[in-house]
Each structure stands twice: as C-alpha cells, then as structure tokens.
Design a protein around this nucleic acid. Sequence first.
DNA 1: AAGACGAAAGTGGTTGA
DNA 2: TCAACAACTTTCGTCTT
Length: 306
Amino acid sequence: MRKFIKQCPECGGINLFRNKERGEMICKDCGLVIEEKMVDFEQEWREFDSDDADKRRRAGAPSTYTQFDQGLGTEVGQKSDLYKLGTKKEKNKFFRLRKWQYRISTAIERNLKVALAELKRVSSFLKLPKSVEEEAARIYTLAVQRGLVRGRSMESVVAGALYAACRRHEVPRTLDEMSEASGIEKKEIGRTYRFVTRELSINILPSNPADYIPRFASALSLSAETQSKAVEILEDAREAELTSGRGPTGIAAAALYVSSLIHGEKRTQREVADVAGVTEVTIRNRYKELIKKLKLEKQIEKTKKK
DNA sequence: AAGACGAAAGTGGTTGA
DNA sequence: TCAACAACTTTCGTCTT
C-alpha cells in the first residue's frame, strides 16, 4: 500500500489534481504524475485453461442498463442441455419452463429490447460517450417501468431520455441535433423530454452556455484562445445577469462571435448561427447586449486597427 | 455582392388566473 | 382551460464594406 501523498515530491507543491477516471494524481505545478493506478484493475491470478477460469473468476460481465435485462438475464436451458436430461418427464418439464420463460418476458422487456437498440443507434450517430448512453438507458428503463411510454412513440421517448442524459452529463446536444439523429420532430422530443423528466423527477440544471463552446468552436475551427475568451465572456455575461431566461445556445453563439471578432478570426454571423442552430437575429440581439453591458467595443476596435 | 442591421409579424411554450 | 407574455424565428428592406 502506497502512502497518501499531500505534497509533490518533485517541487513541493500542494496543488495536486486527482484524475479519478485514470486513477492518477498529478501535480498541477510541475506536471509530475505522483500516483498511478490508485485502484489496481489487474487480476492477481492467471488462468491457463477454461477450468481455471471457472475456478478463479469471480465476476461476470458488468451490469449495464444498455442491455434490456441489465446483462443479468438467465435463460432456461439451451437446446443442447436437452441431451443431459434422461426421462420424458424431465424433458416435459424443460419445455414447460422454456415456455414460461418466454411468457414472462413481458411487454416491458420486449419494449426495452427494441428501444435500447434504437438508443444505441442514435447515441452512436451523435458520438455520445458511453456514460451518457448508459444514463439514457437507465432513464428509459425507468420510464418504461412507470408506463410513461404509453401513448408516445418509443423513438421519441428514447430521444427524450438521451437528451436528458446529455444535459445531466454536461455534454449538451441541441434539440436540432437530436432531432436529426433520431428522426423525431424537435417539439416532440422537447415534449417527451419535459414529460419524462417531470414524471421521474429528474432535476436537470439549466444547461450552461459554456458547455456548448468547445463543440461550436471546433466546428468553426477557431483557435483555443478564441475559445477561452468566449468562455470568459460568458462568465462576465452571467455576472451581468444576461444569461438567465435566454436560450443557452444563442448566448454561446454570440459570445463565440464576439470572441472571434476580438481575436481577428472573424466568422460571419451566418456561419456561427448555422453551427449553433440559431438565427442571425438572435445572435445579433445577444451580441448587442453583450457589447453594451460588458463594454467590449474597445477590444473589438483594437483588433480592427491592426 | 455579401454581410450586417433592424423592424414587424408569426410561432410554440410557459405562467397565472 | 384560456389569455397574456417572453423568447426566438422568419421575412424583408436598408445600410455598410
């Protein structure tokens, strides 16, 4: 067991950053990786044949919501098991159990099977991280169990669940993107999204405009400086209470637009509007507010002269 | 000619009686 | 359940570069 380090042995800094996902601890000052693999994921035994595997493995596949039964389902016998059974009585029992097994897989499970396939399709179309997909699957499963899908198309609930999961994980996609990926109308997704989150009392933070910046910026191939400037502007905008009640994408787009002007990487309103999925008018309105309240005119003037 | 700007009318959703 | 309302869009004409 390694001892717990509070100070960087290299530079003595105490500004340590723990990256839980990778199991590392890093010194923010000098970049030294102090601890690695804080949790050891290796197996401590070896197996040479399947016999060893049976004896030594003590964990199965991870439980997951992206399988309709969380990956934990059982099946009553395969056909091949039949040969092990001797008497006719036993064979009858075997078939009876299989039949029941089939019947027990109720509407819910069948629904989940189809829905989760759709969910995976949409999720991979949008290149969403696994964690979001998992979360969406969980939400959907809950929704089905509560009978919230009744009267709604499965696809729309899937889209709504995904949208909610994105928001929770702060990797927001716009309703437009979701709509494109799932083939469901935007307002329909919005409706089911609100309905499902309300019914399941999933509370979702109003999405933060800054979360959109990296994606929009890269779509416009803007520099990192421009990007961070945009985030700065958003910070100030929030201070000035310019953000509440407005559509987050509009604000993000405007901040990015202003930032692109300041850094002399000008993009047209049209271009920014397109990637953000808002209109030029909205950008203009937000943009006007931004330069007025935050006094950004000077900064823009400066780069103009150059 | 393209982009920026602004006015006016329209749309879908929320809120409060 | 309905009307008022705010945010956003669409459309279109004008100004600027």
